[in-house]
């Protein structure tokens, strides 16, 4: 179905409007290869979150094609639930289930969707908690955890489905500054393990160190895509230059 097999995510001329006049995504064409880590940045209101939410169709699009691992996600015949099993999603506000314990949060989908046995799911859940450094919190409830801990559980929850892609929608924006590092560290480890990742973030340090490519979005348009070194040292378009000045030196922008 897909001519380019190495593309894990592919946008082809995607457009989206809110109502009639608000054109939030304009002719988006973008590829993310298997194992690649792509950071999407841009001013607020530029359409970053909308963009990443179209990949698992939490936001529908009006026009164009989006492909994930050879399946067109916005095709009417595509079983969207099936596709979402393969695409992990981490939210800005974590969205853990407050009535379930940490381990139950992680095992719910594997048991109900993947039909894994509870014992297997528990075992895998514990491995993942180990990986995000929270194995001692298995029986805690989300509200008993700090923001950073909650987000690490949310990442483990996404990984429990053994997805092919992980999407992150501003994963550290709701965190207190001292907790950002622990979440980014988990994400960095994940990137090093070869996971295909698309990350909307304002953490330019993460982009510089971990990303293979940075995509700059403004007013719903991709204005620039480049390797981090090139993007940060030598941004081509005016809007990207201005954005970087504001983000990197907010008091002097």
């Amino acid at each position: 179905m897909n001519s380019d097999n190495s593309a894990m995510i592919r946008f082809n001329q995607v457009n989206k409007w809110y109502g009639r006049d608000h054109h939030v995504l304009k002719n988006i064409s973008l590829e993310v290869k298997q194992g690649e880590v792509v950071v999407v940045c841009g001013p607020s209101g530029s359409g970053k979150s909308t963009l990443i939410r179209t990949i698992n169709q939490l936001e529908p699009v009006n026009d164009g094609e989006i492909w994930v691992d050879g399946v067109q996600v916005n095709h009417p015949r595509t079983n969207i639930n099936r596709l979402r099993e393969e695409v992990g999603f981490v939210f800005q506000h974590f969205n853990l289930y407050p009535h379930l314990s940490v381990l139950q949060n992680i095992t719910l989908a594997p048991v109900k969707v993947r039909k894994m046995s509870q014992a297997d799911a528990d075992q895998r859940g514990m491995e993942l908690l180990e990986r995000v450094g929270l194995s001692n919190k298995r029986d805690a409830y989300p509200s008993q955890l700090s923001g950073g801990q909650q987000q690490r559980v949310a990442i483990a929850r996404g990984l429990a489905m053994q997805p092919k892609v992980m999407l992150f929608d501003e994963p550290t924006s709701a965190l207190d500054p001292e907790m950002i590092g622990e979440v980014l560290k988990v994400m960095q480890n994940l990137a090093e393990s070869g996971m295909t990742m698309m990350v909307v973030t304002h953490e330019m340090g993460f982009a510089r160190e971990v990303a293979d490519r940075v995509v700059f979005l403004d007013h719903g348009e991709i204005l620039e895509q480049a390797a981090p070194a090139q993007f940060f040292n030598n941004p081509q378009c005016d809007r990207a230059q201005q954005f970087l000045r504001q983000v990197l030196a907010p008091m002097h922008g």
């Binding site: 698992n56 939490l58 639930n81 979402r84 969205n95 719910l108």
Partner: peptide, 21 residues
Amino acid sequence: PRGQANAGYALGLNIVQVYRH
């Protein structure tokens, strides 16, 4: 919060499972 249902859908749960669990 709307995110509760979305977190379920994002993991591949169908609408019945999202409501039930």
